[in-house]
Design a binder for these strands. Structure first.
Lengths: 84, 84
DNA sequence: TATATATTTAGACAAATATCTAAATACTTT
DNA sequence: AAAGTATTTAGATATTTGTCTAAATATATA
């Protein structure tokens, strides 16, 4: 739970999730959406991956990132315990 | 959304929410649950309040904190956009 | 095999964060 | 009014975080 909330506690990372919600993208394609260096984006991707919020697959010279929505279920359940 | 995720990104603060889920408590009662100084707990309460996750009410010399579950709805909705 | 492209790793640095102690504020009780 | 209790504010400090540039790794292509 710690890793998930840590990952979600950053606007750039949340935006990355929004992008991947639409379709899977390579690291470079993701980086192109931001005014941030590629190494920084790579670091953000790493944190998202540590939280299991995204997965990656190597395709040739590219690395394709996809969202993992199943982990969102954990957050959902946690939140629901507060709903009265 | 930023303030909410920031507030949730700390184990102590999440535990405070768990406590307040059961019943409202004074600042001192909350602090008694942790091995952390009162000023630090006060700071955590402030961050939770900034996120609107809790409310406070002065009762005599005590300040009583309560959870605000309505704001959880915002997180819930955000999470739900990822559920396929 | 040499060069170009895609991505990550390493190392540095400034800003943000969690914590502490000491002091200030506010209310209650004697 | 003085002393005690509850809580916050202020200021300091160590750690974590987000960012950068430079270098390393891996794949593709000429």
């Amino acid at each position: 739970m710690n890793a998930i909330f840590k990952a979600l506690n950053d606007a750039t990372r949340r935006e990355i999730l929004e992008l991947l919600k639409k379709k899977e993208l390579s690291a470079g394609e993701i980086a192109d959406h931001f005014n941030i260096s590629k190494p920084s984006i790579s670091h953000h991707l790493d944190i998202l991956k540590q939280a299991d919020l995204i997965t990656s697959e190597k395709k040739g010279q590219f690395i394709i990132y996809s969202i993992n929505t199943t982990i969102m279920e954990d957050v959902l359940q946690w939140i629901l315990t507060f709903k009265k």
